[in-house]
Nucleic acid binder design. Sequence first.
DNA 1: CCGCTAATACGCACCGCGGT
DNA 2: ACCGCGGTGCGTATTAGCGG
Length: 509
Amino acid sequence: MLRSRLNFPSLTRSSTLFHATRASSSSTTANARPSATNEDIIELLRKNVADEGALPEPHPYKQLAFIKAIKAIEDLDYPVASLKSADARRTIIKAKIIDGVGDGIAQRIATYLHDGEESSLGSDASNSNVSSPLQITSVRDPSLSSSFDGLSSEDDAKRAEEEARQRVIASLQVVPGIGRKMATDLVNEGCRNLDDLQDPYYRDLLPPTVKIGVDYFRHISQYVTIEQADLVSALIRDILESKFEIHPAGAYRRSLPTSPTLPLLFLHPYYNPPLALPAETPFAPKYKGRRPGRVGSPFIKTKSSDTRMHASLMWRRILTPLAREGVVVGAMSQSIERAVVVVRLPGEGEGREERVRGVSEREGVFRKAELHLAPFKSRIPALVALTGDGEFIKDLQIRARSQLMHLSEYGLWRWVWSFSPSSSSNSTATTTSQPSEEIDSDSITDELDEGVWEWVDVKREDELLEKLGMAWVEPSKRNFEFIMGPGRGSKGKRSGKRSGEGRRSRKVD
DNA sequence: CCGCTAATACGCACCGCGGT
DNA sequence: ACCGCGGTGCGTATTAGCGG
């Protein structure tokens, strides 16, 4: 039961079930007529088996599918009718949480449950009164057209109505994961404010990650203090197996008093996958100068199929134990090497019981954390990359490139030519092969791309900085964005830069 | 017909840029 | 200084294809 409150993929089935049954029992009392028993449904499916068998060429797997569904429904400990929704289309979706029930059988069940009502499959009778844009106005101003018949006042009303609508759309977007599109859709469905999102009707429309956002956005929009960060990291260290090395990074490691999120770096000696070489040669940069778009945040965020995800260390040894211990409440995004989660701060002297209860009662203080799992051999570059800040990293990467090296959160590589400069007849080749030469990507021809990236092992942070020609910089002094200031750097819109110290000359070499 | 996987489509957030 | 636009990357939802 506790587990079913989580929104991780492997638990999606049970959690959906949890919400579905509760939702229907609480909100659909008006139209729910759970007269149809599970036996009725089974009877219906038995008939389907027989019908299929009566055909000249019965489809064996089809029959098998019906039989499998019958078995599943027999084992159910709740009435299928409780999955019935006001909208037949949503009944179909809900019915599919039963094992062995897919599109076809779900449709049959829904048709059966909704039989006799106007709103059968295909027609949207039940939907029309919800999706109408007039829903908002009819709620806000029931006497819209009846009391006034002057044209101008009607126009005014319309304008006011549209403004109200836009206000609602804007207000919904404070929830992380809800943008313009989703907010507009929700309003079109009749959602009138943030509180409505708690209603199972709208909740069911949200992807799991956004549900977490809805539940906790008031918490996770608040900054994490140093004390809170210490509290959480200590508890996590305590819970996870001791082989894990855990480093709080980001603004916390830079000694800023607060930060919008808590980045945690996890290292485990067994997690040490082979690394891909840098994708680009030093002479074929995808972009000249600064890369467009936002600065990528470290570590793999790309897709990971459910099965791979659940086999992963991130899932089995980090997220699962932390959820079980009442620390991780839910995930807003997750992949093999990176998860953005909501964590609950442990209360004074709380044990596991109290923490878990706090999570299920939604009592306590919740904050956002980023969990990064790095390959063990990437320990140092990962630590540097996660400590930041952006300008400091950018500076390091520019230095690396100027020395024909490549720095990422995964490692440091040195470019080595695969041909000997003396054997080349091309004169430009010999000159540009000197690492000290200035790189001018325009004048370089393709043949010069021939070379390989060679791994540069670094054991300590100062070693990495030194290899890039930089003297040691304390983590607390790596707030370069602050130093750049409004004069040089383009943006000064970070709100969490109230700390006046950390001033440091930009020239570090 | 179900359920799994891989490929594809889509939505969102964010950044830089140019217009105001 | 601010706003809207377009491009980019990320993550999720959706779809197609296939074995059972």
